[in-house]
Design a binder for these strands. Structure first.
Lengths: 256, 256
DNA sequence: CTGCAGGGTTGACCCAGCGTCAAGGTCAAG
DNA sequence: CTTGACCTTGACGCTGGGTCAACCCTGCAG
């Protein structure tokens, strides 16, 4: 008669594993001796080795039972299915590796290359990291929800930067990050914005880049959270008949 | 302000996942509104998207935190290490597939081909399945513990079968499976065994095939469990100065 | 006002395959 | 008698949440 550790040693498994196999019903519980120790016979060694062999070969414990009693044909079928699952899992991990590689390569944390390039351009025209981060966060949200639109939007942004007033606006915003909420210079921003909007409307722009209402609201609120003077800018714009930020719309003054 | 399900939708994860991230400290718990609902701001959306992006790329949640705050260099290092772990895991699964394939191919449940061949030879000389199973179980134990010895032992077994008395012995054992414990014919087995042993000792055999004491005891007890008349055979052998079964030793009668 | 649907909340169990305490009983040896 | 090794049961931990359960909150229709 063998103790549990002798049994485990003979089969090359741990004591803990043997008890686990008892619990899940793979290996029948043997009689206990007078002190409550499990007492195994040689047959248990053989059963345990067979279990271990299958488990070690990648058969899930839940399927070991059926394979142990299976006829050769069923055995082959079962093994084939398990192999299929292994292949699936391997492919999944390989996909994961690819995504990870892309992450490391340059799509810096959820952003496609076009956005990274655009942020670099903002750096080139002198925007501070503090602003870049705000902008980056906005792009992260867009990339997550409408990745198919993002390259179009980026193109429009690049085009907008061709306009000198837009570059000027960015310059002021760059400074405005330090302004207090009631700075008188906020009006400068509003003036510039309005002139850009008027020009855009003249040119037939629809604005909003095709983003849906939900996302637009989200981005607007992100802006409000991030910038101290944002609320005042929106209020001033509204007085002049413009509404929104991510997607600015012209509202007739008589409707206010 | 967003509810948890709005937040989850914006980031493309489930509500349950968001709560999980709270629990493990990946995403800070936001303020609650007057009714106890979590109220999220747009910043939370960004954090959540970044978490999701990393997790989705195969970064373990436990390491997401450090990567989110990591400097680019540390980030690259971390990603590389995770990739290494992924490669290791893939290799492990591929090894598993190989073992599984060998299992299906023919190494029938823990037995090398040489043993399968030997069992086939036993079938050819007329041994019944009932005996083959006993023998197979013994080989499973040997294969599990001293796989490097098994081919040597098999060679010796094949050689032993060249001796006509051995074949005769197997024939009797084949019938003996049905004998009751007190059958008078058990003596025939003992006679044959003794003559074979004497011949073997003359030929200079050492016996036991190099198996260690532990394994020998185990196999002896397996035999005792499996065969009804086994104990009597061992007793009769012992009267004549032989001890053991798996490894039979000559003991001078005066030492009994 | 009330009922109902469709949100939200926390809590707890579930998957695999054991590893790893914890707290205590048993055994053989010095 | 003590020590140390081994046994017992029970329960938590890990991964990444899925899936109830039971109950609260909100808004809308009748």
């Amino acid at each position: 008669m063998l103790t549990i550790s002798q049994l485990a040693a003979h089969a090359g498994v741990t004591v803990r594993a043997v008890r686990h196999y008892h619990k899940i019903g793979l290996l029948p519980e043997p009689e206990r001796d007078h002190s409550g120790y499990r007492a195994y016979d040689a047959g248990a060694v053989v059963r345990l080795i067979r279990i271990h062999t299958l488990a070690d070969a990648g058969v899930p414990l839940a399927r070991v039972q059926e394979l142990l009693d299976a006829a050769p044909d069923d055995f082959t079928d079962g093994v084939e299915e398990i192999d299929k699952q292994l292949r699936t899992e391997i492919r999944r991990l390989q996909d994961t590796r690819k995504r990870l590689a892309r992450l490391a390569a340059g799509e810096h944390l959820a952003l496609p290359q076009s956005v990274v390039d655009y942020l670099d351009r903002l750096r080139e025209i002198g925007m501070r990291e503090q602003y870049i981060e705000l902008e980056r966060d906005a792009w992260i949200m867009i990339a997550a929800q409408v990745p198919h639109l993002i390259d179009d939007v980026i193109v429009q942004k690049h085009q907008a930067l061709e306009h000198p007033d837009m570059v000027k606006l960015y310059g002021i915003v760059n400074e405005a990050l330090d302004w207090s909420e009631d700075s008188p210079r906020i009006v400068e921003i509003v003036d510039l914005l309005e002139s850009l909007m008027v020009a855009a409307v003249h040119a037939g722009a629809t604005g909003g880049y095709g983003l849906d209402d939900d996302l637009v609201r989200l981005m607007d609120s992100a802006m409000l959270e991030a910038a101290p003077g944002a609320e005042r800018i929106l209020a001033l714009l509204e007085e002049r008949g413009w509404k929104g930020w991510t997607r600015i719309e012209h509202v007739p003054l008589d409707r206010l």
